[in-house]
Nucleic acid binder design. Sequence first.
DNA 1: ATGTAC
Length: 480
Amino acid sequence: MGLKEALVRLSDYVYVLKENTIIGQRVPVYFYISDRLFEHLEEDAIRQAANAGTLPGVEKAIYVMPDVHVGYGFPVGGVMAVNTQTGIISPGSIGYDINCGVRLIATNLSEERILPIRQELMQEILNKVPAGVGSRGRLKLSKEQLKEVAIKGARWAVEYGFGFEEDLMHIESSGTLPDADPDKVSNFAYERGSEELGTVGSGNHFVEIQAVDEIYDENTAQKLGISIGQVMIMVHSGSRGFGHQVCVDYLKVAKDALDKYKIHIPDMQLACMPFRSEEGQNYFKAMNCAANYAFANRQILGFITADTLRRFLGISWEELGYRVVYDLAHNIGKVERYKIDGEEKELLVHRKGATRAFPPYNPDVPPAYRDVGQPVLIPGDIGRYSFLLVGAPKSMEISFGSACHGAGRLMSRTKAKEYARKEGIEKVLSGLVVVARGKGTIMEEIPQAYKDVTEVVKVVDALGIAKLVARLKPLGTLKG
DNA sequence: ATGTAC
């Protein structure tokens, strides 16, 4: 019997894989998924989530979001919380792209102003914002400068001239994670990161000009300063080669330390080390450096895009009305406190393809959003809607303060390319304004290659993990 | 995701 048959449907959006379904699995795995998305649930993704349930110190349950798909060791869309005293830290369960995440910037512009010029505007953004694998930015930073980036995160970018002090108040952890030690990052990571700060990268990463298309919760939207027809900028990017190298380096450290700490794992991709060990702490501190690099990266990308838009229209910053709504990580490990069976515990929450979704009045929600909850940003794929939600109370009870992160792949990259070639890329993308240096990435990232993100957000909304606020439609997209 | 393969 396959694992998929072992899943028990508890309600419309909840399936469970009971503990001990696989050997050594100490906690249940909850899948937050609709029946439609269940059809696409891969056997391997279920196995990966169950495997994580065997890791030392795992608490309560593994949670899997509706946009789940197979990842390296741990599925994308997975949330795992580990006891910080007795548990491990797993680089593969945070992901190769450390602090891959999303930033949303609001403007005062209305959609009508952009629609007639969007083709030319996107060409200009293509000229000004570096994108693509191995793309190099306008900055070339020394190791010493990168160490500052690794410590200061988004603040470094603001001090360098990319943005404003107020931006920092509207970023997860203010865009600066404190437990970062740049001496735990390898020279090779610094080399790879030296020319990539302020670049978009490839894959599903993008910079997009959007318009607010539908509002689901007028009251919350108003408090967030969001209204119909408003032009927004969305940035989806991560820590580029810098974070990738940190992950590669510490996966090796973890594999080499398995015997030393007598850790037994069902899959080498789940190689991990005790969180309190020297190796574990070194990775945590290096991971936070990479996360800070990613916060700085999105700070620069968002600012350059806004500045390009502003100059293109020949208007002032005041007239543009640039305002960072929020910026968050969807690949990260965070130390947070949760009540489990009445006992408060300190946990390392691994979020891989999952966003934090803290409810109203949580102290980590910025003051401006205190009574609405933390903004949750869900990027769509080329030509697809993106969504703005806010964290809701249930997340603290049933998902370690987490929600989904996006659509999740449906077709492999090869299959997507085949499809695009067969149908013709012009037809597949008809009506959309998409710019890129090459066609390759676009072919792999066609909308048909992804699950329907609308269905994904419906699930987290229905579960009370996050509440739908607004839908954003793309006006123009820059891809890597 | 990724100098898209150590």
